[in-house]
Design a protein around this nucleic acid. Structure first.
Lengths: 206, 206
DNA sequence: GCTAAACGGCACGTGCCGTGCCGTTCGTGG
DNA sequence: CCACGAACGGCACGGCACGTGCCGTTTAGC
């Protein structure tokens, strides 16, 4: 049984004193949440079960998170090792490829893939989770992409009329669509095709 | 000749004896499901409440559907008035525009919009619902688009190397992404921008 | 070391699940 | 036209997880 959920960083406004009781509990709860989530899936996850396995009272969970969704969101985001930062080698397309390859390797494959999918499902059923997910992950991530694209445009690698926001959607959209709606695994090859179509047009493909 | 129910007979060809008890119940239940869904949202919907309002025993629901998700899926799809069929005026791009405008008007706006969003949320949490949604709606819809694109390619309106499947994703992806992830309302203007980018390239935009 | 907050354990009421039973309605085949 | 049986509404049940209250204990901070 692989227990490699090592790194944790809680984004909330709690005491950050290492080893403090509160921090210990918070980390243990989030670790257990991910563990149980992997085992039985988000849908069957219950706060009761998390409390039991973490050896913690239910109050200790409810004191920190208002719902299962909020707990799950925090738990998943605690894994974000900022692997998803952009390189800037001067070649936009190469940088986009690298970053998106890394993103799908992390977000579309076990162990995170199924959990991330469930998180978005929860977000579609619970507006507060959707808002939090957007604020803490989607938007920051999109802005990294936008910044990289803007830099490229400023350097003259993209035409001055290039629509950055639209490009964002045309890059991300097909990937989310395929992963969430069609539910097929994303491949590097597919990412490359999307990028190619975006930058060199749909007219023909070798 | 059995008059047995079998949900899903909406919009279809099965000629059912109108007024048969089973059919009446099935329709009443689905109608009530949509009604309650609009009022309190899918998340708070319960089979118990549907049964109560529809004046129906819970068995009568469980006899037809295995879960709340299955009931909700059938109920929503029973609204599909096949408004989403493609015209073929000979002009692919115009036809795509028209069809996609109609699609977002139906699927992204109340009353259907919030319900469709919730259905996808449920699908992301329940594999069986995802499979059924794909089989009964997503895939057929995608194939209509593919057929229209293929016809255009055969007519020479698109280059022979045009990647139809990829084009599907590049069309649908950004719309779903914006509607489900970013959660902004879709506009005709946005659809037009996506289509234009797809067919005339991202290089610049007037 | 003292105090107050945080804690684990336990119990409770609530809501909904899914199923079983009972007596009634209703359509279908004879 | 009737008799039969499936489908039905109503009711009750056990089960589970929710969210909260209480109680006695642990622990961090002064």
């Amino acid at each position: 049984m692989s227990t490699r959920h090592v790194p944790f960083r809680y984004g909330g406004g709690m005491t950050d004193k290492r080893g403090s009781r509160a921090t210990d509990r918070t980390e243990a709860i989030m670790r257990t949440t991910l563990e149980l989530g992997e085992e039985i899936g988000y849908a069957k996850l219950s706060i009761e079960a998390v409390a039991a396995r973490a050896g913690v009272g239910k109050h200790t969970i409810y004191r920190r998170w208002s719902s299962k969704g909020a707990l799950f969101l925090d738990s998943l985001l605690s894994l974000n090792k900022s692997d998803l930062d952009y390189p800037d080698t001067g070649d936009v397309i190469a940088d986009l490829r690298r970053q998106i390859h890394a993103a799908i390797d992390l977000l579309d494959r076990p162990p995170v893939g199924p959990l991330y999918r469930a998180l978005i499902g929860e977000a579609l059923l619970t507006p507060q989770i959707a808002a939090a997910l957007n604020d803490h992950f989607i938007t920051p991530q999109a802005e990294k992409t936008l910044a990289r694209l803007k830099a490229a445009r400023d350097q003259g690698q993209l035409s001055p009329g290039f629509d950055l926001d639209l490009a964002m959607d045309l890059l991300s959209g097909p990937l989310y669509f395929r992963a969430l709606i069609i539910q097929e695994p994303l491949t590097h090859e597919y990412v490359d095709r999307v990028i190619e179509a975006l930058f060199t047009g749909m007219g023909s493909r070798p």
